[in-house]
């Protein structure tokens, strides 16, 4: 049994300690927003917040995650009310297939937590570890720039 601090709750999971956090979240915790993309910290699709900082969960071992406060996309909304970042992305249709979307939303959320008015450069630098193959980048950037105003 390993204790996880996940989206404001303490939960116990049964998994081998070397299991990457992404697998634990998806298969033991029902957290499907975390996507497997590359399993090598190259694409950002599995991004979660660990102590409020975005990290790839595909290589983070369960044992190293247990000490940290974890937040996933599911933890950003308050009940039915989406966070401002989620809402900005949604109302701008800032996505195509959406596979990269939750990682991007989590990273953008972290950015806005530290800086309510990020510049264009702040935004693209914060998202630079996130790949999007559909080419939805311009509308993600526009949505977040609008929110930053």
């Amino acid at each position: 049994m390993t204790e996880l601090q996940l989206n404001g709750e303490s939960i116990a999971v049964e998994a081998i300690e070397t299991t990457p956090l992404a697998y634990v979240l998806r298969n033991e915790c029902g957290i499907k927003s975390v996507k497997l993309g590359c399993e090598a910290e190259q694409c950002g699709a599995c991004t979660v917040l660990a102590d409020d900082r975005p990290v790839p969960s595909c290589t983070l071992a369960l044992s190293d995650a247990s000490e940290r406060r974890l937040t996933t996309l599911e933890g950003l909304a308050r009940g039915d009310v989406l966070s401002a970042v989620q809402n900005a992305l949604l109302t701008s249709n800032a996505s195509q297939c959406g596979y990269c979307l939750s990682g991007i939303a989590v990273a953008a959320y972290a950015l806005f937590q530290t800086n309510a008015h990020p510049t264009h450069n702040n935004i693209v630098n914060a998202l630079d570890g996130h790949l999007c193959r559909c080419g939805a980048h311009p509308r993600v950037i526009r949505a977040l720039e609008q929110l930053a105003k």
């Binding site: 957290i31 499907k32 927003s33 996933t72 996309l73 599911e74 909304a77 989406l82 989620q86 992305l89 949604l90 249709n93 996505s95 959406g98 979307l101 939750s102 939303a105």
Partner: peptide, 9 residues
Amino acid sequence: LEDKIRGVG
């Protein structure tokens, strides 16, 4: 899109 931004699988 709404399901996707809410993390629905």
